[in-house]
Amino acid sequence: MQNFISALGLGSLYGLIAIGYTMVYGILRLINFAHGDIFMLGAYFVFFATIQYKLPWALGVVIAVAGATLCGLLVDRIAYRPLRDAPRISALISAIGVSFFIENLSVVVFKGMPRQVLQPDFLTRPISLGDVKLIPLSIMVPVISFALVAALLWMLYRTKPGLAMRSISHDIETTRLMGVSVDKIIALTFAIGSALAAVAGIMWALRYPKVEPYMGITPGFKAFIAAVFGGIGSVPGAMLGGLALGFIEIMSIAFFPTLSGYRDAFAFVLLIIILLVKPTGLMGERLEDKI
């Protein structure tokens, strides 16, 4: 049961980050390497707001999400938009550069050492459910994640910007001809992805109570793998892939404790297997190369 809850929590965090990857990839066919670093920035912002400047938690969360969203928008504007018509690999190299930049700038600005995040009391006071003891945080993480995904799905399938997003992912040129301001919609996509990553970053910082400049790399890659696993381009798929990855990680260590040293390799092995067996993932559409 304990393992189930923690797998659910980890999985939904992977899922939240994966959504940002899958939405950007669905529209631009770009692996946004900087996404994991936006996640890290979200965690740092909430750390500074609440612990350094002693702001209330609610305000800190708002500031962190807004700050990370702004960073995501800036990344798109500065590093990706000039390369919209360039070969895809150029944009990918730019993404690698941005990721490298954010990490190193964070080392300079935030200093390299990990910092302790004080968990607020109301999230850690254990409550008993029958014979299982839980802290509210471990329930809060999946609940918030699922609520956000539900809201996002509503936005994608019931609102105009959502329609525009789905349409861009099918055919960017035709959508432009239909009078949609493509750059704005792409910016909105980055904003949503970054906001979700920031929320995930905040919850991550609370779960493993510390922040450090390189904390985004490994979860970022794993979330990307989750997005591929779920079928890149599909939001429900990303969430599903994230949950699956969370369960695979936690359960394989629970059953085979000797493998715990290899924990970080599981996801990459999974990636190579998926890419070979079913590159479209669980819920992805087939992308044919045009000749």
Partner: peptide, 20 residues
């Protein structure tokens, strides 16, 4: 296995290999 993939997927798969 990985050269059956193209473009950025190949990049990610080789990156995955070096991490493994």
């Amino acid at each position: 296995p990985v050269l059956r993939l193209g473009g950025d997927y190949l990049g990610i798969a080789t990156l995955g290999f070096s991490e493994i």
